[in-house]
Amino acid sequence: MMDRFAITDSRWRETIVAVGLQFAAGIALATVTVALEGTAAIAVAGGPLALAAIACFNTALIIRANLIDPPRELEPSTEAVAEGSFNVDSPTA
């Protein structure tokens, strides 16, 4: 679905959407606790809480894919350069 809206074309867009989803879940949780009372608040709060957990996991996956994995892909090339070999193939984006 993110591909359909061209969100995955940019790391900035991916991160902002992930953070926006977490913020929206927080607003939904606050609204539920203010608008409802007792058992109804607890029952309805489960939905936004589950969505917040999914958004948090999604953010962790985005950060891993965009900030952690690319340097790991460069590691063999950088080690070869450190050993003195400048004829190395580096991974491309």
Rank of each mutant, 00 (worst) to 15 (best):
A50Y: 01
I27A: 12
T31H: 05
R4H: 08
R4K: 09
M2S: 11
G20L: 01
Q22M: 15
F86E: 14
G47C: 10
V19K: 07
L61T: 07
E73Y: 11
I42A: 05
E14G: 06
C56P: 01
T33W: 05
L21S: 06
G38D: 04
T59C: 15
R13S: 08
D9Y: 03
A24S: 09
S10W: 03
V34Q: 12
F86N: 14
I7H: 10
L36E: 00
T33V: 04
A25V: 01
V32I: 12
L49N: 07
R11A: 13
I7M: 09
A50T: 04
W12Y: 08
V19C: 11
A30C: 05
F86D: 13
V34L: 10
G46P: 02
L36A: 03
A55N: 04
D89C: 10
M2F: 14
V44H: 00
D3V: 03
L21W: 07
V88Y: 08
E73D: 11
A52Y: 11
S77Y: 06
E83A: 15
L51S: 06
L36V: 00
P91N: 10
V34W: 09
G46E: 13
I16V: 14
E73T: 09
G46K: 09
D69W: 01
M1P: 14
W12E: 07
T33E: 10
R72A: 12
T31Y: 11
T78N: 15
E83T: 11
I42W: 01
R64H: 12
L36I: 01
R64C: 10
T78K: 14
T59Y: 15
I54Q: 04
S85E: 14
S77P: 06
A28L: 05
I68F: 04
A25G: 05
G26Y: 03
C56H: 12
I42V: 13
I7C: 10
W12F: 13
I63V: 12
R11L: 08
W12K: 08
F5P: 00
T92A: 11
Q22Y: 05
L51W: 11
G84H: 03
I16P: 02
E75N: 08
I68D: 00
I62N: 07
F57G: 11
V32N: 02
D89G: 09
F86R: 13
L29P: 03
V19D: 04
A24V: 08
V81Q: 06
D3W: 10
N87H: 12
P48V: 02
A35V: 10
F23K: 07
V34I: 14
S10I: 02
G84F: 00
P48S: 08
A28S: 11
V81A: 12
V32T: 06
A55Y: 03
V88A: 06
A50C: 07
I54P: 00
D89P: 03
D69Q: 10
E37M: 07
E37V: 09
G20Y: 01
I54T: 09
I62D: 06
F86M: 15
E73N: 12
I62L: 06
E14M: 13
M2W: 13
I62H: 05
A41N: 01
A65R: 13
D69H: 05
A40S: 11
P70R: 00
E75V: 04
S85P: 04
L49G: 14
E83K: 13
P71T: 01
A93E: 13
